[in-house]
Simulated scan of single mutants.
Amino acid sequence: MNPNIISFLQKQTVASICTTDTAANPYCFNCFYAFDAANYLLIYKTHNDTNHATLMLAQKMAAGTILPNKINPLLLKGVQWQGEVLPQSSVLIQQAATIYHKAYPFALAMSGTIWAIALTQIKMTDNSKGFGAKLTWNKID
């Protein structure tokens, strides 16, 4: 993955995550996330009884966006991504929990379950490198 994309994902805190129901009706939510650069995981915490958790368990695929914590309209940066929701039984979930709680220690006191999305595609717009400059990444299995 391009170091500029990794750096961007590590510095931000909020992701917009989208999924669909079986009729392809979209549903989006926002959450604090942590990024695992070694495994290309977007990690977040939520309750299993939420609408988005139910949909993601059924659909397994997600997409979303990440914008900078502070937006500079002239030097806009942002990421559009796609990925696959990892099952709760994945061996990576325990490691993901450690990464998430290191980034957000207050989340240890909150109920909920750690979730992770294995990123498969990223398109980053980075106007600091020229208007409309794009960086792309695709996971190769």
Rank of each mutant, 00 (worst) to 15 (best):
Gln95Ile: 07
Pro87Trp: 08
Asn39Thr: 06
Cys31Ser: 15
Asn138Asp: 13
Ala23Tyr: 11
Leu119His: 08
Leu42Cys: 04
Ala62Glu: 03
Trp115Val: 04
Asn2Met: 01
Ile117Ala: 06
Ala97Arg: 12
Glu84Gln: 14
Ile17Asp: 05
Ile114Gln: 03
Ala53Pro: 00
Glu84Met: 10
Gln12Ser: 03
Lys123Asp: 06
Gly130Glu: 11
Gln121Ile: 00
Met1Pro: 05
Leu86Glu: 11
Trp115His: 14
Phe32Asp: 11
Asp21Pro: 06
Asn138Ala: 09
Asn25Ile: 01
Gly64Tyr: 00
Val14Trp: 06
Asn48Phe: 04
Ile114Cys: 06
Pro87Asn: 15
Thr46Pro: 09
Tyr40Ser: 12
Leu55Ser: 04
Pro105Lys: 15
Leu135Arg: 02
Lys60Leu: 06
Ile122Ala: 15
Asn72Lys: 08
Leu67Phe: 12
Lys70Ser: 13
Ile99Asp: 12
Met1Ala: 14
Ile122Glu: 11
Met124Gln: 15
Val79Ile: 03
Pro73Ser: 14
Gly78Tyr: 03
Thr120Ala: 13
Val91Met: 05
Ile99Trp: 02
Cys28Phe: 07
Asn138Lys: 14
Thr20Glu: 09
Leu42Phe: 03
Ala63Asp: 07
Phe106Lys: 10
Gly83Cys: 05
Asn127Arg: 07
Leu9Thr: 05
Leu41Phe: 09
Pro105Ala: 15
Met61Leu: 06
Gln88Arg: 12
Ala58Leu: 09
Gln88Ala: 14
Thr120Ile: 04
Ile6Gly: 02
Pro3Thr: 13
Leu75His: 14
Leu57Asp: 15
Gln95Tyr: 08
Met124Asn: 11
Pro105Phe: 15
Pro105Asp: 15
Asn51Ser: 06
Thr20Asp: 01
Asp36Phe: 06
Thr50Ala: 04
Thr120Lys: 15
Ser90Phe: 05
Gln80Arg: 09
Pro68Tyr: 05
Cys18Trp: 00
Thr13Ser: 14
Gly78Asn: 10
Pro68Glu: 15
Tyr104Thr: 04
Ala58Thr: 14
Ala116Asp: 12
Lys45Phe: 01
Ala109Asp: 14
Asn72Val: 09
Asn72Gly: 02
Asp49Gln: 08
Ala37Tyr: 08
Trp115Asn: 14
Cys18Glu: 12
Ala37Phe: 01
Ala96His: 10
Asn127Gln: 12
Ala97Leu: 04
Leu108Phe: 11
Met56Val: 00
Ile66Asp: 06
Ala109Cys: 05
Tyr40Trp: 02
Gln82Asn: 13
Cys28Arg: 02
Ala118Pro: 04
Leu74Met: 08
Ala24His: 10
Lys129Val: 02
Tyr44Ile: 07
Ile114Pro: 05
Thr65Arg: 11
His47Pro: 03
Ile5Gln: 07
Thr46Val: 06
Asn39Leu: 00
Thr50Gln: 02
Trp137Gly: 01
Ala58Phe: 00
Ala133Ser: 09
Pro3Phe: 04
